[in-house]
Structure formats: structure tokens, C-alpha cells
Design a protein around this nucleic acid. Structure first.
Length: 420
RNA sequence: GGGGAGGUGGCUGAGUGGUCGAAAGCGCCCGCCUGCUAAGCGGGUAGGGGGUGUUGAGCUCCCUCGAGGGUUCGAAUCCCUCCCUUCCCGCCA
């Protein structure tokens, strides 16, 4: 969330950012409620101060008149403090609904169409035959099964079997080894269920609860991304500045209800209720966060490069970047069979937006005051679509799949993937 | 799931109704001392919010001893609920 103090001083800036993001920001309500809350708080705290004073005096004097007054003032203080607390709670709830600002380098725009391609890597491969889609290939090879998954779980689920499951595992291993071995990340295996406070911390709640699955009768949510447990890992801590930056990589399943996604072009292994993802999360000093975002993004790109997959890097425009993001890149991988790009990674900087919600702070140096961290994260990468791109890019005329060289160690060295 | 013990500042840990936002030790910071280092000596050292003020000095008030309620003029301390940790039993991968 944004600092209340900042909204007080720069309401127009907050309004403008919200508008360009296509979000609502209850700025006027906040300013009004903030004014009333502070008024009320002042009255309440003065009464409390008086009560404390009288109470202390009574301890010494045992004067019944002091006692009487203390009781009286105490009642008032209690009443007013309750009022103030009620206002503050409303205020806090409103604050959680104000979108983040965005960096000046973010292009202004309304939709996907206004995102800007920053660079491309590789090129669309040529085929001497009509390339097939990953789901055609996957079903023909017997490594992807949507029908049985529908019976077992429902639509938007899939089984990977045999070489398909192994390919996913190979990709996970490859990504984790790259990020831990060469990019300096610490591997984390986090909880897959988290409480509401964590969901608020990374800004899935209160606004986007419908996008996630919740466990019945318990305050637990299936994580929509490892960003949630990993970013919240240091919630309410004051970290030693000397330990920064913290770089974590986590492989987890992710769960999304995909409410409202029906009807979009999502045939295949693309938009699942459950999917695997290797996620990069960084907690860094504010001054270094923009640089850290570019670095994190290039680390995600490195996965695609080593896999030899053609992709483009986009910077998201204001209208498409999201509620909490300060700046966001998408990596879109080319799928020759589908004939379009699929998003395999979103790399976002949140500035202190999440850090304020989750109270993630650090002490720059001993004796100095705590400051909020900056948080960022990005997929490195989403498994489903990376797997799709591998199948579609490395398909052969005979329906087999050439195993990308970097994955061969995880396939016992085999070069071709045939039907199971 | 049943029973016991417990959750206090960066850490260890004392504190069972006011003199406690909190002893002591460790750590850390500043200074002194000694060729250097270590040791020693002195001082400082929780977080959040409001007001005023400065622009990131200060002054002042309020809140916070796992969380939320309650009793009381007054709660770290007493009562209730919940969460978490740990031990024993049960169950289990």
C-alpha cells in the first residue's frame, strides 16, 4: 500500500496513477476519513493522557476525588478510542484498495495493445511441414491427457504422463540449477497453503480473492504463486541491511480459479487451475530495485535462451500492468504450432507497496532507523507454457520431439522423445 | 485429537497489580584508556502512531511484553477466547 502520509501530500499523483492504471482509488474518502480520524484520535488520546495522570496520582494520594475523576475520564477515553479505532480500521481497509504508483519509464496505455516490445531474441523457426500444436503433439505422443484429468478433477486440469511428466521435471531441475548455481539464488520450498495475512501482504487480498482457491472453513488459501509465501517469509521482520539482497527461488504448484477467463483462447496446456512455476523473489534496498528488476528479468530470459526458444520482452503499459506493480515486464515465448506468443514470465517491481503491507523492513546500519524494503519477483519460468513451447519448437516431421541440449542430462542423455 | 509447559526488546532471560516499555547478560554504536589487537572503563541502544516542528534534530502525547476481548482508577502480571512453540500420549507419510 501507499503511505497514508504520501496520499495526504500528493493526492493528485495518486489519482492520476490509479486512473492511468484503470483502477479505482478512494482518495477523497481517504482524505476525509483521515482528517476525521486524526481529530477523533486527538480527543481520545488527550482523555487517555489525563486518565493516566489521575491514575498515577491516585496511587500516591488515595484521594477518592481523583478516583472518581479517573473513572469518569477513563470512560470517555475508552469511548473515543473505540471510535477512533473504528475509523482507522475503515481507513486501513481503504488504503489496501489504492493501487500502486508506476515508474516514469512505464508507457501510458489502456490495454495489452499498448504494451511495448523492448527486444526479441532468436527467430521463429522454419518448418518443412505444418507445425502442430503442443496439445496435438502431447496427445498423439500420449504424454498429455486432458480428458482423464477432466474426469478426475474437471476442466482446466491435465495429466502429464511418461516423458511428459519427465520433461516437466527436467525443466524444473534445469531452471532451479541455473538460478541457484549461476544466478545466486537460495532455493526455498515454501508452504503451498497460506493464511489471509499473507495474501494481503502481497496484495492478492482484499481485492482479488475471487482469483484464488480457498480452503473451506479455514483461513487458508492455495497459493496462486510462490510469490505469496516467499515474499511473506520475512513478514514483520527487521532485516539486517548487511544481509541484503535476499534472493530466493522456489518451485511450487500454483492454483488459480481463473474466474472470468472462460471463452478466451485457452485451448491446450495454457491456462490451468493448477500449474507449476519456478519463481524468483528478491528483497532489496530501495536504491537498487530498478536495477534488480532488470537483472531478475535477464535471469528469467536466460532460461529461454539456453532452451533456444524464441521470445520477446515487453514492458507493460499502465493499463495492463496491474494493481500492485510499479513496473512490469512480460516474457512471451513463441509457439510455432499455436502461431502466437505465450506469456511465460512476468517480472515485476513493487517498490515498497508489498513491503508496507507485509511490514518488510531492514536496518541499513546498526543504530539507524528501519526502512521498508523493495520487493520484486518474476517467473523463471512458468512450466506449462515453457513445456508447450519446447514441444512445438522442437517437434519433428515424424511427431517425435528433439530434446533441447540443456535438458538432455535430465533425460539420461536421450536426444529424441518418442511416444510413451 | 488428549494432557503438561511456555510465548517478554536484535538474542538469552528476570519480572505475579502502580515505583515497568521493562533488571541483568550478550550483541551493536559512540567515547576513554593502552604501540596495535584483545581486555578494561563510561555512555547509548525496541517498534508504531498523533500533535508541533525540522526537512529527514528536537519536544510532547498515545499504543504495543504472541493476537483479540474482559476485570480494575491502574495489567507484561488476574480472567476468557484464539494462534503459535515445545514435551508426553494417540495417529500418521
Amino acid at each position: 500500500m501507499l503511505a497514508l502520509d504520501f496520499i495526504r501530500r500528493h493526492p493528485d499523483e495518486v489519482r492520476r496513477a490509479a486512473q492511468l492504471k484503470g483502477e479505482e482509488a478512494p482518495v477523497d474518502e481517504i482524505l476525509e476519513l483521515d482528517r476525521r480520524w486524526r481529530e477523533c484520535l486527538e480527543v481520545a488520546e488527550k482523555a487517555r493522557a489525563q486518565q493516566n495522570e489521575l491514575s498515577k496520582r491516585f496511587a500516591k494520594t488515595k484521594d477518592t476525588e481523583d478516583l472518581r475523576k479517573a473513572k469518569e475520564v477513563g470512560e470517555e477515553a475508552k469511548r473515543e478510542l473505540a471510535r477512533a479505532a473504528e475509523m482507522k480500521q475503515k481507513l486501513d481497509d481503504l488504503l489496501l484498495r489504492v493501487p500502486n504508483l508506476f515508474h516514469e519509464s512505464v508507457p501510458i496505455g489502456e490495454s495489452e495493445a499498448d504494451n511495448v516490445v523492448l527486444r526479441e531474441w532468436g527467430s521463429r523457426p522454419d518448418f518443412a511441414f505444418e507445425p502442430r500444436t503442443h496439445y496435438e503433439l502431447g496427445e498423439a505422443l500420449g504424454i498429455m491427457d486432458f480428458e482423464r484429468a477432466a474426469r478426475v478433477a474437471g476442466s482446466r486440469f491435465a495429466f502429464l504422463t511418461g516423458a511428459g511428466a519427465r520433461l516437466e521435471r527436467a525443466l524444473v531441475q534445469f531452471m532451479l540449477n541455473l538460478h541457484t548455481g549461476e544466478h545466486g539464488y537460495t532455493e526455498v520450498y515454501p508452504p503451498i497453503l497460506v493464511n489471509s495475512a499473507s495474501m494481503i501482504g502481497t496484495a492478492q487480498l482484499p481485492k482479488f480473492g475471487d482469483d484464488a482457491f480457498r480452503v473451506q472453513d479455514r483461513d487458508l488459501w492455495l497459493i496462486p504463486t510462490a510469490e505469496v509465501p516467499v515474499t511473506n517469509m520475512h513478514r514483520q521482520e527487521i532485516l539486517d541491511g548487511a544481509r541484503l539482497p535476499l534472493n530466493y527461488v522456489a518451485y511450487t504448484p500454483c492454483f488459480r480459479s481463473e474466474a472470468g477467463a472462460a471463452g478466451k483462447d485457452t485451448r491446450g496446456y495454457i491456462r490451468m487451475h493448477q500449474f507449476s512455476k519456478v519463481e524468483l523473489v528478491r528483497l532489496v534496498e530501495p536504491e537498487k530495485s530498478l536495477e534488480a528488476l532488470d537483472e531478475l528479468t535477464s535471469q528469467a530470459e536466460e532460461v529461454l535462451r539456453r532452451l533456444g526458444l524464441h521470445y520477446q520482452l515487453m514492458v507493460m503499459c499502465t493499463g495492463d500492468m496491474g494493481f500492485a506493480q510499479y513496473k512490469k515486464y512480460d516474457l512471451n515465448v513463441w509457439c510455432p504450432g499455436l502461431g502466437r506468443y505465450l506469456e511465460v514470465s512476468s517480472c515485476s517491481l513493487f517498490n515498497d507497496f508489498q513491503a508496507r503491507r507485509a511490514s518488510l523492513r531492514y536496518r541499513p546500519a546498526p543504530g539507524e532507523a528501519p526502512r521498508f524494503l523493495h520487493t520484486l519477483n518474476g517467473s523463471g519460468l512458468a512450466l506449462t507454457r515453457t513445456l508447450d513451447a519446447v514441444l512445438e519448437t522442437y517437434q519433428r516431421a515424424d511427431g517425435g520431439i528433439e530434446v533441447p541440449e540443456v535438458l538432455r542430462p535430465y533425460f539420461g542423455g536421450s536426444e529424441i522423445l518418442h511416444s510413451s
